[in-house]
């Protein structure tokens, strides 16, 4: 019989080692796989995508910035540029490089795959928004044109990705979202968020942490060189201009805004109280959102609080005759206009 102490130590060691190897997202196995995926093909495609974006934003694409985006040395980056050029996807004139039509097509195909995959992740999987971009960055290189077509079909040919960016059509048309940066929005105007840039991730995570999402209505209170103070739905945010610049907005016509922003979250109602649904926040998306609509929770529906779980969550609501329990994370996203008791009596 093995000495128990030695067996114990070996056991702990084995557990520890397997955690080191198999731990999702940071284990050795995962890193190895990630490294293997970083082939020339991927680097070429990333190069094309980068130059495509630079051209659209009318920024010069330099070797340094390319090496930065690919996170490789400048030597390796120029190697990749040479291969890309040899394939006829890229043209060099002096220090500047630009895409050939074939290169642009490939870049658009990658962007299309990327945005469709993000749409897919947002609508038909349970991944959170901070996971979308990372995953799409890897998948965009693996989806063939046919895969992309199939994906688009299965999603009902969506038009925009979950960040509000338009998805290029299979023919390669790409329209712009036409918004302006939130940092440029005049004070006291309200606007709808049409797009949130998901790169760099550091800034994106900050925006998501503020609970800001495409289709939300915002109103700017104050703009100074160090900060932008604004309201969204029901709370105030303060962001640095550099962060706010990554949010694109389209100014709203006056009457729409009043209608959209009214209402309190459903989860603030108490047992016995009633409210009329005014809006469902765009934060609720995909299957979850459709389910709410199918249950009859649409603007104008009367919702009464029936009972609360002994622990405080979920809460059961009477919705069009049926008692349906929702969690507070869902009810929070449903905005209602409270109905006072007098109003209730009149309606009866």
């Amino acid at each position: 019989m093995v000495d128990p102490l030695i067996a114990l130590l070996i056991g702990i060691g084995v557990l520890f080692a397997s955690a080191l190897i198999f731990w999702p997202d940071s284990g050795l196995l995962w890193r190895l796989q990630k490294r293997r995926e970083l082939t020339d093909k991927v680097l070429i495609e990333d190069t094309l995508k980068f130059i495509f974006k630079c051209e659209r934003n009318q920024k010069p694409a330099t070797l340094e910035s390319l090496a930065g985006v690919l996170s490789t040395s400048q030597g390796r980056a120029s190697e990749i540029l040479a291969i890309t050029q040899a394939k006829g996807l890229l043209e060099m004139s002096g220090k500047r490089f630009s895409l050939t039509p074939a290169g642009r097509n490939t870049a658009i195909q990658i962007v299309r795959a990327h945005r469709l995959w993000e749409r897919h992740l947002a609508d038909t999987t349970g991944f959170g928004e901070t996971d979308w971009h990372q995953q799409a960055e890897r998948l965009e290189h693996k989806l063939s044109v046919e895969d992309t077509e199939r994906l688009s079909a299965s999603l009902g040919h969506p038009t925009h990705d979950p960040h509000g960016d338009p998805i290029p059509t299979s023919k390669g048309d790409l329209v712009s979202h036409g918004g302006l940066p939130l940092s440029d929005l005049p004070v006291q105007t309200s606007a709808r968020i049409v797009h949130i840039e998901d790169e760099p991730e550091l800034i994106y995570v900050q925006i998501i942490a503020e609970d800001l999402h495409p289709n939300m209505i915002v109103e700017v209170d104050e703009t100074t060189p160090d900060r932008i103070r604004f309201w969204s739905e029901d709370r105030e945010h303060v962001l640095a201009p550099i962060v706010a610049a990554n949010i694109s907005v389209v100014p709203l016509v006056e009457e729409n805004h009043v209608q959209d922003i009214q209402g309190i979250p459903l989860d603030t109602l108490l047992v016995g109280e009633k409210g009329k649904v005014t809006a469902i926040s765009p934060l609720s998306r995909g299957v979850e959102r459709r389910r709410l609509f199918d249950l009859g929770i649409i603007p104008g529906t009367e919702v009464g609080v029936e009972m609360v779980n002994p622990g405080g969550d979920p809460t059961a609501y009477r919705i069009r005759g049926s008692v349906i329990a929702l969690r507070s994370s869902q009810a929070r996203l449903i905005k209602v206009d409270p109905i006072t008791e007098e109003e209730q009596e009149i309606s009866q």
Binding site: Q33, H120, T124, T125, Q135, L139, K142, L143, D147, R150, L151, S154
Partner: peptide, 20 residues
């Protein structure tokens, strides 16, 4: 084939063998 997938587990990924 997609419709045979009882739980609606992501079909594109399954078919191409991608890791989710």
């Amino acid at each position: 084939v997609e419709n045979l997938d009882g739980l609606g587990v992501d079909t594109v990924a399954l078919k191409s063998g991608f890791r989710l």
